Amino acid sequence: MPVAIAITNPGTPETMKLVELPITEPGPGQARIRQSISGVNFVDIYVRTGLYPLPPGQTVLGFEGAGVVEAIGSGVENVKIGDRVAYVGHPLGSYAEMRTLSASRLVRLPDDVSERLAGSTMLRGLTAHMLLHKVHPLRSGEWVLVHAAAGGLGQIVTRWAKRLGANVIGTVGSGAKAEFAYEAGADAVLLHNSEDWVDETRRIADGRGVHLAIDGIGGAMLSQTLATVRPFGTAASIGQAAGPIPPIQLEELTAPRAIGLARPSVLTYANDPDLYRQGTKALVAELRAGLINPIGAEYALKDAARAHADLEAGRTTASVVLTM
């Protein structure tokens, strides 16, 4: 029987267990895929720890993956048996050798995009598309601040922003990680634990601040991040790896700052059929055109708990994946 990684209650990585799952036949509009890879993302940690509630009846973690279609139900026209596909979004279940899900969620892969690349890129890539095309449609010459620029999301946002002609200031937690941010294309890299990183960001960005600031660190960092944004720019809060975010007062956004604050969700973005189609089409086109998304750490499916522990502790760079 195929195996998967499941939890029954929120908790530490040790709550994740390898379980056997029955093979399910696809119903109308569904497809069953045999997976080769699953991405590991901070949102998975949020689900495991209980920050995001586990949906009723679901126990297997993971929002993105890739593999080959093994069977299809009635009415399925967008994929056929043997197609290589990738996906991102609800329902949970990508930490599995095999799964059945709605065929409408599946994106067919062209010959020149591997399952390994697509399956490790869908969530972060769709997040980048959401940030750079929906939250703040980025224009050439604008300035972007990317926190955790050595991480999986930070690198792909940096690379995509540079392809759009933007200037990128990345922040990292240690000097050792700076080279990864520079390799991704950042124009400047700062330590976000230094005392002057806010002032230095504003100085580099024309002395006025950035047009878009992307903060996945959370905790007390968001309030500092707001100070890096120029008037009528936007700050996007996309996570809280450092812990809960203290309340933001409206006065922190108003004059003389006059900035916008967004709390976008890539899973909500993926649940909109039109946005999902537009975003995944654009992402696949960028991958075919050379957008790079390096894999920094790879684990066997059975070692998913160790992958979570390493990602949570900041011991990884770039994308983190599970292989089947």
Rank of each mutant, 00 (worst) to 15 (best):
A262F: 02
L51T: 08
E179L: 10
G141H: 10
L191C: 11
A166E: 02
A66V: 08
R203Y: 10
D303C: 01
G11N: 05
P110R: 07
Q249C: 06
I248P: 06
A149F: 08
I33D: 00
F180W: 10
L164P: 05
A242D: 03
P26L: 14
V210E: 14
L190A: 11
P2K: 00
G209I: 08
R277N: 12
E77P: 05
N167V: 04
T317V: 15
P53T: 11
R34H: 02
H147L: 09
A305P: 15
A118S: 02
I245S: 07
T228C: 15
V168N: 13
L54S: 05
M98F: 00
L51C: 07
W143G: 11
N193C: 07
A305I: 10
K281S: 12
A235P: 07
A227M: 00
S114Q: 06
P28S: 04
Q155F: 11
G39I: 13
G29R: 08
G29P: 08
P273M: 06
A161C: 13
V88Q: 07
L109I: 15
P28A: 01
P91Y: 10
T323W: 00
H133S: 09
L250W: 07
L101G: 06
V146L: 14
H147M: 13
I81P: 02
G219A: 12
A149W: 05
F63W: 10
E77C: 03
D303E: 00
G260M: 02
I7T: 03
A161E: 09
G93P: 08
E77L: 03
R163M: 12
R306C: 13
N293V: 15
S74L: 01
V229E: 03
V284H: 07
M221T: 11
L18M: 11
G296Y: 14
A270K: 06
E183Y: 13
I245P: 09
R116A: 07
R139E: 08
A213K: 10
G218T: 06
A235H: 12
